[in-house]
Write a protein that binds this DNA or RNA. Structure first.
Lengths: 110, 110
DNA sequence: AGTTATTATCGTAACTTTACGATCATAAAT
DNA sequence: ATTTATGATCGTAAAGTTACGATAATAACT
């Protein structure tokens, strides 16, 4: 088939998977790092920092925006991107909860 | 094209993206939660808990294993899966570093 | 108005993912 | 030895992803 069985999973897991998917490509991680570093927002500078074409970067930005992790505001001719604080913290929180739920076994499990 | 430009990105970003990709599907998040909850390892019980066929679950398990997040040991007829402590902590750490690098702007950035 | 810069979108090619049924491999049980 | 259970792998179809060039849309500049 190809489409994931979106039903039958919890909203939390679907949401978490959506955030994880946004991070699931090195280019998008790199874009987020650029946005983290520059703090203030940028646009086509991202294209210059990455070895990807403008259209490809634009597509990655779209995916990050659709996942909610970033927002882009039009500022005249340019578009200014930055981390979306709320979603960022929510993703951080959800991932933290998942990962901190692990309690190592005393003896080897397997 | 379709293949990601693996070169040209940092090892860290590639590694982080690999972990994120493992989490990028609700079924795999659900599998990890099952493994987290049961602590001790399981196998075909996962198939019973999810609305997916055995072969599909097996494929998801393979991806989690290839990402390093879980390990599976053969125990007679059954196969026993569990979280891989080292990779789990590394993924947690890498995600933590990324997410905690965000400093909200005083005034709205965009 | 015409040009230029910036970014999004379209079209397309190649590859990957998701999902399932069917089959195979292995080990336990009879 | 044959059956049974468990799980991996194969084959395949449908859908999604990644990447790029080309084109379109918009706003600033001349």
């Amino acid at each position: 088939m190809g489409a994931s069985k979106t039903a039958a999973f919890t909203d939390t897991d679907i949401h978490l998977a959506k955030y994880a998917k946004a991070l699931a490509h090195p280019a998008r991680v790199a874009i987020l790092r650029i946005l983290l570093e520059r703090r203030a927002c940028i646009c086509g500078d991202i294209v210059e920092e990455l070895p990807l074409s403008q259209s490809t970067v634009s597509q990655h930005l779209k995916e990050l925006k659709e996942a909610g992790l970033i927002q882009g505001d039009i500022d005249g001719k340019k578009v200014c991107y930055c981390i979306d604080a709320r979603a960022w913290k929510q993703a951080q929180q959800m991932l933290h909860v998942l990962f901190s739920d692990y309690k190592p076994c005393d003896t080897n499990c397997c």
